[in-house]
Design a protein around this nucleic acid. Sequence first.
DNA 1: GCCATCCTCAACCATATGGTTGACGTCCTG
DNA 2: CAGGACGTCAACCATATGGTTGAGGATGGC
Lengths: 123, 123
Amino acid sequence: MDQLSRLFAALTDPTRRDLVARLTEGDATVGELAAPYDMSVQAVSKHLKVLEQAGLVSRAGPAHRSPVHLEAEVFDLMTGWIERYRRRAEERYRRLDALLAAMNERTANEGTTGDEQPLEGTA
Amino acid sequence: MDQLSRLFAALTDPTRRDLVARLTEGDATVGELAAPYDMSVQAVSKHLKVLEQAGLVSRAGPAHRSPVHLEAEVFDLMTGWIERYRRRAEERYRRLDALLAAMNERTANEGTTGDEQPLEGTA
DNA sequence: GCCATCCTCAACCATATGGTTGACGTCCTG
DNA sequence: CAGGACGTCAACCATATGGTTGAGGATGGC
């Protein structure tokens, strides 16, 4: 699985999104992170593993009680993907609007010209 | 499942991300969308259903051969969530930097003052 | 050095996911 | 109106996911 897929998958689960949200307030140990949930510590540990493999979280060391740290920069991978296609879609809407405006203008000037499939392959 | 979860889940699958990417080039029928993949049309139809339930995609009508349309605005729900916590994390780093700078200045001026847990609850 | 605490690993279970094939409904064509 | 093309529905299968419990491995305090 590629990292982008791992990132989206990681943030699919509401518990994991909540963990990320809490980590923006500062590093925390697994125990601290697990405390608020009505769920076993092992389950939270698994969630953290998923976040870690997605690159969203890191551990200071393999040590006992070592704090979990949020790696906020990897968010950019997702926003990068999203914004790219968001922009592309908007770009297309603008072109479509321009095209429709041009068509309106032409029909207002002289009516149909015999060329009637201007949308094909352009929009 | 809440919409945010559905959105992240929808974009987890590379095939669905690719469908979204292609829809930024313009609306398309299910058949057109399914053609490039080494996969049954039914499978692509399922993927489109997932995208539709996440709000990322809409159909012109229940009709035969009706085009699939991308709803790019819902991207904002995700970027909104991501950017919120991205900002929160950065905000925290700035506060931490400021605190460390203040500590350095103080120790440079007069050494320890006896109050030695300034990080607790602040970072 | 011992023991409690923190955390992870492993096995297990229920359900969700992503794919298949086959059957069916609906529309456009002739 | 008969037939083919397009799309979805349903059943099925393999694997992934999110949770549980039980056991075990390090660490740190005493």
